[in-house]
Design a protein around this nucleic acid. Structure first.
Lengths: 347, 347
DNA sequence: ATGAAAGCGCTAACAA
DNA sequence: TTGTTAGCGCTTTCAT
């Protein structure tokens, strides 16, 4: 029977096979890049496939092979720009290999998190998972997934010892560099706004800050440290705390841009001029960091490239039964981006 | 043979069938909400399915039925926050019905756009498409897709006459309200930064602005109109144009928040105080509009709700062979959000 | 209202 | 190196 509207009739493997004068199995072999195919045959098949514009039906593929051609990005409430950048990179990697990206928003504190992920994996024929922070640090979830044979990679994990591929930036070193830069500009009292305590990066950034103070011989004043949560609102609150003091700091380093934007907002409110009487710095180089006044000095991470890389690795793991135990992580370079918020100080 | 790692063995329809003491066809009927099933039977099947935690295998489903359980969001370079909000709503609608969301970034100016979409549709077993702006306005693409029998919905289309479901906000009315608000604050010279010329909303917003001037008896000065492109950079450029003049406007209405942020940036640079000597307004209520100093007066659209609604409609269309010709659009309410950038003026 | 049988397009196992 | 035969889990068609 004819379909109501013959939208676009896909080409099937049989047509390619007969067109190339081989069996469908051979076509299948070529499409799956299997080794045992004579080169001339391969060429013939590829030519036929291209001519007919053949695309294997993913549903049939995964049904027959019990494999998945999906990568699921698992995330909890990321910043919009991070999500966008990461997605772009992930999509790019997927596109190159014929995979599709699935989105799995979730609550990292939910007791059913593991169950939800298992459901996802079960339903979708065992897709690979990309665990973004802070999910990359839920060691029990990670362990369970591993035990279940789920393939996954992690983004910016605190514990790189776990045997799964990952990408990261050296948060500690980045925060160290930024802090040192502030010190070298003449600051002696530098406030620090910590990131969300459940994000591994928060601790690393804080350590970088402390390390720089230490190495430059500045005393560590714990009253200059306040706890934020990576949100604009928490940045405002922390900013108010730090700036309301008589002996307020001359610089504030917030663990991300949104919080730094919050600090700037409060500075404006209190009519504290930036940068002449206060320097402010953030982390992440989100678009927001350009839009504030003054623009924010910050740290840039190559999020898109990292995503592309780690998703590529994941797909490789999904294809071969590659020994995931040996697979290591990749560290990407960060970049210190200097803008107006740490401009000429003290005049 | 046993799989290497028995990740998580999915429950199949056979198990549910035998558990419920019916044939698999009956289970299938129940799962697909077909009518011809006795109620008691339905209950038994549903109970069995729940008990075994049965989830139909989507790959098998789409292979057998030649239907798709995917919705593809087609977009070209949206703002990060728009993408995030829209995705949230779309995912929610998908989750409720057991569909998955696919992402299809593309270039709306590419000559191969239609081809790419057809490929997507062909490969993925005819998923439904969500055309976001400015793709919703490519009338030739829309027509072709329609002709091919592709199911789709449109977001914020200029031409609501085309017979496909859509969601939108009354951009014209919103811009009208915002402009009137500015006029009522005492402004007589209001600069306007147009949005990207290829986005339908741009024209509508501009018309709202003009309409308000007209109704309030203000003269229209076309030298106060500048062409932007929805980007921060274009906002800066336009802001510079408008503010460098001797007889500069006392208020600037930018067609989106990013451009308004650019205007603020320039105002700071030129040391023009906002809001005492200049009012600025944007459109969209992105997070950025809160982060700037002062925060931006703007128009809020319920993006997430709109996405959820329109994707729900799309899925309905995909299920039934519902007469898409009668399906109409939905207009959502906007909201005027007043913030500091249009605070007390003239003092 | 329910069931039996025949595929959907592909890959897996085994032959040749 | 290549082909043959069974399915994968579901929906369809056609009976009953």
């Amino acid at each position: 029977m004819l379909r109501k509207k013959p939208t676009t009739r896909p080409v099937t493997i049989d047509e390619v096979a007969s067109h190339a004068g081989v069996s469908i199995k051979t076509v299948s072999r070529v499409m799956n890049r299997e080794a045992a195919v004579r080169d001339s045959t391969r060429q013939r098949v590829l030519a036929a496939a291209k001519e007919l514009n053949y695309k294997p039906n993913p549903a049939a593929r995964s049904l027959a092979s019990n494999r998945s051609y999906f990568v699921a990005m698992v995330y909890d409430n990321p910043s919009a720009s991070y999500l966008l950048d990461f997605q772009s990179g992930a999509l790019e990697a997927c596109r190159e290999r014929g995979y599709s990206l699935l989105l799995q928003p979730c609550d990292y504190q939910s007791p059913q998190l593991l169950e939800e992920l298992v459901t996802l994996v079960t339903e979708r024929g065992n897709p690979g998972l990309v665990l973004t922070p802070p999910l990359s640090d839920l060691s029990d979830v990670v362990e369970q997934l591993d035990k279940l044979g789920v393939k996954f990679v992690r983004v910016a994990p605190v514990d790189p010892e776990h045997p799964s591929p990952y990408v990261a930036v050296d948060d500690r070193a980045a925060a160290y560099d930024l802090t040192r830069y502030l010190i070298d500009m003449g600051h002696k009292r530098i406030g620090f706004i910590k990131g969300h305590p459940h994000h591994g990066a928060s601790q690393a950034r804080f350590e970088g800050y402390r390390g720089a103070l230490r190495d430059r011989g500045l005393s560590f004043d714990k009253t200059l440290i306040v706890q934020g949560f990576f949100s604009f609102d928490s940045g405002e609150q922390c900013g108010r705390t730090l700036l309301a003091r008589k002996d307020r700091p001359t610089a504030i380093f917030a663990s991300n841009d949104e919080m730094a934007a919050g600090v700037l907002h409060i500075a404006h409110e209190l009519q504290i001029d930036v940068p002449s009487t206060l320097s402010v710095a953030g982390f992440d180089d989100t678009p927001v960091s350009r839009y504030t006044w003054p623009s924010l000095t910050t740290i840039r991470q190559p999020v898109e490239a990292m995503a592309k890389s780690v998703v590529g690795t994941l797909i490789a793991v999904m294809r071969d039964e590659r020994k995931k135990d040996q697979s290591k992580g990749t560290l990407f370079p960060y970049e210190l981006v200097i803008r107006g918020s740490t401009g000429p100080f003290g005049r």
